[in-house]
Design a protein around this nucleic acid. Sequence first.
DNA 1: TACTCTGTTGGTAATCATTATCAGGCCGGT
DNA 2: ACCGGCCTGATAATGATTACCAACAGAGTA
Lengths: 143, 143
Amino acid sequence: MTGTVGGRRRRQRSTRQGGLVRDQLAAGEGFRSAQTVFAELRAKGEEVGLSTVYRHLQVLADEGQADTLQTGDGEALYRLCGTDGKHHHHLVCRNCGRTVEIEGRGVERWASQLAEEHGFSDVNHTIELLGLCSDCSQTRPRD
Amino acid sequence: MTGTVGGRRRRQRSTRQGGLVRDQLAAGEGFRSAQTVFAELRAKGEEVGLSTVYRHLQVLADEGQADTLQTGDGEALYRLCGTDGKHHHHLVCRNCGRTVEIEGRGVERWASQLAEEHGFSDVNHTIELLGLCSDCSQTRPRD
DNA sequence: TACTCTGTTGGTAATCATTATCAGGCCGGT
DNA sequence: ACCGGCCTGATAATGATTACCAACAGAGTA
C-alpha cells in the first residue's frame, strides 16, 4: 500500500533467480500462488528461496508484467500477462485455472459513472469472474 | 466452501453473544473486520471471545444478513445489509468506510453473457469499487 | 421450578500465507 | 581482478483465521 510511486525503477540486476521465477510463471497458463511457484521450482530441482520468489512476483506485479488476484482465503495468485500495463479483467476457471483476459470497456464506464454519481473520486475497481470452463464443467457436472 | 447445503438450518439458539455481535455490526456504518468488532465490543466492556465473534460474523454472512469483502491483505470485512439475499455490490470509501450499495443489473448481464460466450458455466463474480467519498476527497486532496 | 440435553462459548494452541531481518554472495562497471 | 551495492535465502516474526475441547447456558420437559 505504501507503494513506490516514484516511477523511477531502480536498476534491476538480471539474476538467475529472477529469470527462474519469470520463466516458471510463463510456463504455466493459469494463476498460481507464490507458494505454488516456489514448490514447482523446487520440484524441478532449482535452488531458489521462498523470499526470493515472493520478491520477484511482486516486482513483476508492480511492473505490470503480471496480474494478481486474491483468492477468498487471503492468498495472492499471479499470472504473466501479455497486454502489459493495459487495464483488464479475468474470467478464471476455478478448477483448472484456465484464464480468459477481458477488456471491460463498458464496465469501466459504468464504474466511473457510478462513482461520479455518488460523489466519489479516485475510484478503482476489482472485478473477477470465477467459473467452470467448458472442459471442467463436463468432467465434474457438480461438486 | 464445504458449506452446509442441506437447506435445513439447525436450530440456532439465541444467545447474548450472538446479539452483541449483530448489534455491534448494526451500530457502525461501514465495513469492519472481525478483529475490529471484537475490539469494539471489548472496549465497551462486553465479555465476548474472539472465536465467538468470528463465528457469528460467519453465520451472518452465510445467512446473507451481512456482506463481506476482502481487503487486499487477506482480511475479511463485514457489514450488515438491508437488502438481504439480494445480490449487489458496493462503492466503498477507502478512507472512512462509507458505503453505497449498488445493484449492477447491467454488470450481471455483462458477466453472464461473457461467461456464456467463452463456454464458462456456474460463474460468480466479485466486483468492488474503492474510492474516496466527497467528504474525504475534500479533506485530503492527495495522499 | 428443577433437570437434562445439546448447542454455544472462549481461552489457547495451531495453521498458513506473507513480511522482516541480515549476513554472505553475485552482478557489473572500473 | 577489484569493489560497492543490490540480491539472495534461511529463519524468525507477524497477523488473521481456525481448530480444539472442557465448561457453560438456552429451552423444552417432567
